[in-house]
């Protein structure tokens, strides 16, 4: 079209897609860390928490 329109749509899709991917990834990691594991390796598995 004229470059600007595409850039705008790309920014929106990229921004929202990127943020969604971040969310999905984070919740997957968190769920894994909350699975009951042996007390010892609990800490190693927990991943980033903040």
């Amino acid at each position: 079209m004229n470059g600007y329109v595409e850039a705008g749509y790309l920014a929106v899709l990229g921004g929202l897609g990127g943020y969604s991917a971040l969310l999905l990834n984070k919740s997957k990691k968190l769920k894994r860390s909350l699975l009951p594991v042996k007390a010892k390796d609990d800490r190693d598995e927990s991943g980033p928490q903040q």
């Binding site: 969310l23 984070k26 919740s27 968190l30 769920k31 860390s33 909350l34 927990s46 928490q49 903040q50």
Partner: peptide
């Protein structure tokens, strides 16, 4: 995002 926040709080 809310679920993540709640899970983090639980951890």
């Amino acid at each position: 995002r809310y679920q993540i926040a709640a899970l983090e709080q639980n951890v």
